[in-house]
Design a protein around this nucleic acid. Structure first.
Length: 528
RNA sequence: GGGCCCGUAGCUCAAUGGAUAGAGCAACAGAUUUCUAAUCUGUUGGUUGGAGGUUCGAUCCCUCUCGGGCCCGCCA
């Protein structure tokens, strides 16, 4: 597509001015239309490198580009101000590229940049001590879409959910349920809330299949799975912490650290020398009473991930775990594993509001808004789009009132509406115009609105590539909104029915919008 | 006390170091004999928290500062 093609042109033009290496220039869509369809700062950077006037360098690059392209892709080149090169594309090239969209159809936007690389993506990993809440929803959606982005660039992705089904929290859960069953108050540090009562009520029923603590946990996990599936999310792998205990993998991992001289004993406990890796203090691996800590289990878990042979291991964690990042990376390094394969995406938390009032989540009282309630209230599509549309580095204020209220002019509907509108046109065109022919009609697309729409369509593959590289699902949402805007604009300006070239363009828009929504896991309705 | 993230229009958020900082919502004024008005066009709205610095160029990088969120367990 134009941008990647221009990129190869510019990089070979740079050789003509004596720049062979990567200098980190960019090819952008400029802020104003009169600056061209694309622009590059290559001459500015090259000028600095060569200690020459950037404008002179720009002229030379332009001359080289003209020779390379031979007037096929580029209609005009302009050098401006500090040394930008503004690029105007040939209409014919843009028009022909639109035909490419039809050929690629479902593959349109996908690439094979990372073909064959195996990647493990772990996210959500909520404790099986209660229902998923709104906060989990953010990671669920973000993780799922990052997974889709990775697949779009041909990573082989495994989506994994780690279940902490061992430890104090589980014991506390069982105690809380037993207390509720006996009509006693919630124990100190225990869990409250309706779901605890639900479980204890179930336990009282003669017919209930749920009896043991293992079954209680399993039931909670199944409920979590169910909610995720209501959001369109299926994990490839559910990794139970108990597997590590049963397989004796935790002690094995600690043994490796011990053999490498990374542990010591003090106060009856075995410690990891995490201070050597930059931690504030050393951390316990095996407690005084012989039980391993969560940290030890997590080390074993990540060792297991490495042993499964992934090229990249990625975790999505909330910022409440950020302090733990260095420690775990330190342990991985201490094991002699390649730390650079391991990346943790830290996301900011969701603050829930009901109007102006923040809704405090309390474990104790169990006062929380569950993910399922949100899905029930605003629907799967809106929930996904809402969580995906914001950079994970930003705090997200989730106002339930607003989410409900907006459900009618929520951006997701704006994008879906464009798709539905298109389907309606195409349906109508079939009855009016049973044969839509090919040929050179595509060259009739000369209206500015048509051109803008075409250029936006052609930006799709680059958008996917960049979003995958930066792991930024929100860029896909942004693109969806922009494309919908361009389409609606085009629709107002240009009558489609009876115009074969425009029908081709509309169908290309349909394909692109559908692929956008597909990547986001949002339905692409044919009517609304 | 130490660390991580954030601060952009009234509100919710965009902007891979680029050109005159953009959308949606809200407010105001318009557009429908016409392919879906869940749409479009226009107006109002900004010292990018503040002060320095680096750079041809800073919302973005560095230093300081103010404000907000989160973390600093032999919890998970």
């Amino acid at each position: 597509m134009p941008q990647s093609k221009l990129d190869s042109f510019v990089s070979s033009a740079l050789k003509n001015v004596g720049i062979e290496e990567q200098i980190g220039y960019k090819i952008d869509v400029p802020p104003r239309r009169e600056f061209g369809d694309f622009s590059t700062n290559a001459a500015i950077i090259a000028g600095k490198k060569l200690s020459r006037n950037p404008l002179d360098v720009a002229e030379e690059i332009v001359a080289a580009l003209q020779k390379i392209d031979n007037l096929k892709l580029i209609r005009e080149l302009k050098t401006v101000k500090p040394g930008f090169i503004n690029i105007f594309l040939n209409d014919a090239y843009i028009q022909q590229s639109v035909l490419e969209i039809h050929k690629q159809d479902h593959a349109w936007g996908k690439g094979d940049d990372y073909k064959g690389q195996k990647i493990l993506l772990e996210f959500v990993s909520a404790n099986p001590t209660g229902p998923l809440h709104v906060g989990h929803g953010r990671w669920a959606v973000i993780g799922d879409i990052i997974g889709n982005l990775f697949k779009a660039v041909e990573y082989s992705v495994t989506k994994e959910f780690y279940v902490n089904n061992v430890g104090n929290q589980i014991e506390m859960l069982i105690k809380s349920i037993e207390a509720a069953k006996a009509g006693k108050p919630t124990p100190e540090g225990g869990y409250g809330g309706v779901y605890i009562r639900d479980i204890s009520d179930k336990l009282k029923e003669q017919s209930s299949k749920i009896k043991t603590s293992g079954e209680i946990i399993k039931d909670i996990i199944n409920q979590q799975k169910h909610v995720l599936s209501n959001l369109g999310i299926e994990f490839d792998s559910w990794f139970l912490e108990s597997q590590l205990h049963e397989g004796n993998k935790i002690f094995a991992a600690v043994q490796i650290l011990h053999d490498l001289g990374k542990t010591f004993e003090e106060g009856g406990a075995i410690w990891f020398k995490s201070q050597e890796t930059g931690d504030d203090k050393n951390r316990v691996l095996i407690r005084e009473d012989g039980r391993p800590t969560y940290f030890a289990a997590d080390i074993a878990y990540h060792l297991d991930k490495y042993n499964r042979g992934f090229d990249q291991i990625i975790n999505i964690w909330g910022t409440d775990h950020h302090g733990y990042v260095g420690r775990l990376k330190g342990a991985i390094g201490a094991l002699g594993l390649p730390v650079e394969k391991f990346n943790i995406i830290i996301g900011q938390l969701v603050t829930l509001y009901r109007g102006d009032e923040p809704v405090r989540m309390s474990k104790r009282t169990g006062e929380m808004v569950t993910l399922q309630e949100v899905i029930d209230e605003i629907g799967c599509d809106a929930t996904r789009f809402f969580f995906a549309a914001t950079d994970v580095n930003s705090h997200l204020d989730f106002d339930l009132e607003l989410a409900k209220k907006q459900s009618n002019d929520n951006p997701v509907f704006y994008v879906q509406y464009a798709h539905a509108r298109i389907c309606s046109i195409l349906k109508k065109s079939q009855s009016l115009n049973p044969k839509s022919e090919q040929g050179d009609i595509i060259s009739n697309l000369n209206d500015p609105a048509e051109r803008r729409l075409m250029l936006k369509l052609l930006a799709w593959p680059e958008t996917v590539k960049l979003a995958a590289k930066l792991r930024h699902p929100h860029r896909i949402c942004e693109y969806g909104k922009e494309l919908a805007t361009e389409f609606h604009h085009f629709y107002e300006k240009c009558r489609v029915l009876g115009n074969s070239a425009r029908l081709v363009l509309v169908d290309a828009s349909r394909i692109t919008l559908r692929n956008v929504l597909e990547l986001l896991g949002v339905t692409a309705p044919e009517s609304m």
